[in-house]
Design a protein around this nucleic acid. Structure first.
Lengths: 198, 198
DNA sequence: CAAAACTAAATGAACGTTCATTTTTTTGAT
DNA sequence: ATCAAAAAAATGAACGTTCATTTAGTTTTG
């Protein structure tokens, strides 16, 4: 009984994941703008109706994908955080994890950026739009309390940390810069660190 | 004779501009994703067919709007550049113009960001995607030659300048930060300057 | 065999675009 | 200044297509 339930669960999870993965892939190829449920089904090798066994609508599919990515990203970034460690260590490890995640999952990066600017989002996620900043915001807040960062608005400190990463990723994805070599990445992180630390 | 021609020109320019302005407005409200030519016509107070007297297609309309905004933005930013002046002065004035333009035209900022991540773009503009960085790239290149900036990759110096501006604008548009007060803007520009200058 | 998973065809609404027609503007002779 | 002819601009209904979603039926699973 239990075994059956688990197997069913795993199996359907696989199909659900397949749909999510295919969506991510297609959104990157054609954008939200041209994401078609028919093409999605064809690409995933399933029937058009199957998607609706796992998702209520196209929008909820996209929203769920977004939430999944945010959870994954924030989880990975927060792995660089250890309570009690120096701010510097936490900052570097978290920022490093963020960049690594984006380099490893460029489609997720692109999806998030597309999503952030799409006003068709459900109301509930409207405020979750900046959820991607939560991990960075967390340590900036802490560091600000302990006066380990410059006396600047919290938002500016976040922008000085996250902004350059996004810009570099954009340039990287356009083939205009390197980011995979240790040097460039370290230079990026070091520059961000200098911008916020005292 | 001449008077007639001029009047025709001005008149039709107005209608074209009306369509472009309405497009910008609607893209901000609903995203590319939900931009409908019918709604566009209704909102602009024109007939559905009229749009096609001025634009070949929905895509070319969007592309033309993008090009117009880029030209306007880059024009405004480059007004902060004077040959022979110090790098510092040029940097501050140009960056200041960029921020001012975005604050004054948040819809243009949002449109550009949406456009950058939309893969449905015509091939010809695929490379123009980073055209927004041209003015900043220009002075960074010059400053790099004269060793007025840190010894970092050109792309990183650009990312350290433009990235925080984009991030701050996003936070600003989400109502999460101030950016209109002189102080915050100056802090932003000063931080960018410190990140790139020696 | 019963339940769950899946398919394929069908549905109506919405889409971008076209085009025959109407309205508005311009022209040039009076 | 007037006005009919000509040209240009604008209309809006209609087009074929594509869309997201539903439904009824089939296959797979335990």
């Amino acid at each position: 009984m239990n075994v059956h339930l688990v197997l069913i669960c795993v199996y359907s999870m696989n199909k659900k994941e397949l749909i999510l993965k295919t969506t991510l892939h297609l959104v990157n190829r054609h954008g939200f703008y041209h994401l078609s449920m028919k093409e999605l089904a064809e690409t995933a090798g399933i029937s058009a109706g199957t998607t609706y066994l796992y998702f209520d609508s196209k929008e909820s599919l996209i929203n769920e994908l977004y939430k999944n990515i945010i959870i994954e990203f924030n989880g990975k970034v927060l792995k660089g955080y250890e309570k009690g460690r120096s701010f510097r260590s936490n900052y570097f490890d978290m920022m490093n994890n963020a960049v690594d995640y984006y380099i490893k999952n460029p489609e997720c990066f692109s999806f998030i950026e597309q999503y952030t600017y799409s006003p068709f989002i459900f109301k509930e996620t409207q405020e979750e739009n900046l959820a991607i900043l939560e991990p960075i915001q967390k340590i900036i807040k802490e560091a600000k309390k302990e006066k380990m960062v410059k006396e600047l608005p919290e938002t500016l400190l976040i922008a000085l940390s996250y902004g350059p990463i996004v810009s570099m990723m954009k340039l990287f994805m356009a083939g205009r810069t390197d980011l995979k070599t240790k040097t460039t990445k370290e230079q990026l992180l070091e520059a961000c660190w200098k911008a916020v630390s005292i």
